[in-house]
Amino acid sequence: MNPMAENRNETVIEIRNLEKSFGENHVLAGFNLVVNKGENVVVLGRSGTGKSVLIKCIVRLLDPHAGTIHVLGTNMLDLKQEELDNMRAKIGFLFQSSALYDSMTVQENLEFPLRRHLKRNVKYDIAKMVDDALLSVGLKGTQKMSPAELSGGMRKRIGIARTLILNPEVMLYDEPTTGLDPVTGREINHLMLEVQEKFRTSSIIISHDMNCVRMTANRVVVLIEGKNYAEGTYDDLKKSQDKNIKQFFD
């Protein structure tokens, strides 16, 4: 249950001196992060400290002011639109609110990422792809349902399924358990681990939910004042006497 061990040295995501500010508010001020192949890294931080900003910068939903971001060896900040779209296909992004398209059925939601990422002259069995993705999140047969009919946990699962349909190499989870009851949250944590194992993904998980951190993290990075304040395993940090770190565990 430690897949990171085998590919310890292969870097998937490398972030150097990332800076991003909104007006006077310097959200990221020289943030550094390295994610290795098959590793689940949790970025821990309080609300509003720019955790989401970090992963949005990775997929270029936000443009950082300074610093570099390399994903799978590609400089994300120096891409044309088409290249960027191709890179984004390799990165799965689970939004905090799941971001399912309300006006579409589950089936259409899952098909949506395929519209731009299927090769023209290859015949795809889209129905089977949708089926498989739903199967891997444990929601087989929900194709015809609309997002409004789904519970919060189901929406998260569908959200994950929607990213898995493109077989991503990197997963970015934005507060995956926020707003869920502890039981459902635990299910989602298990699902994230399953995804890690099954799809051999490397992940950045943004969270302040300690259960989530404990269950999913191979490594934890504490984000305070726009910098990586501390780094280590869950157990390492738990032992820490720093009051800034301790507050997460209390």
């Binding site: 997929v59 939903l61 296909a89 992004f93 609110s97 971001a99 949506f112 519209r115 929607r162």
Partner: peptide, 10 residues
């Protein structure tokens, strides 16, 4: 975030 989701799905 549906608009962001669209953006990242190409």
């Amino acid at each position: 975030e549906q608009i962001d989701a669209m953006e990242v799905s190409g």
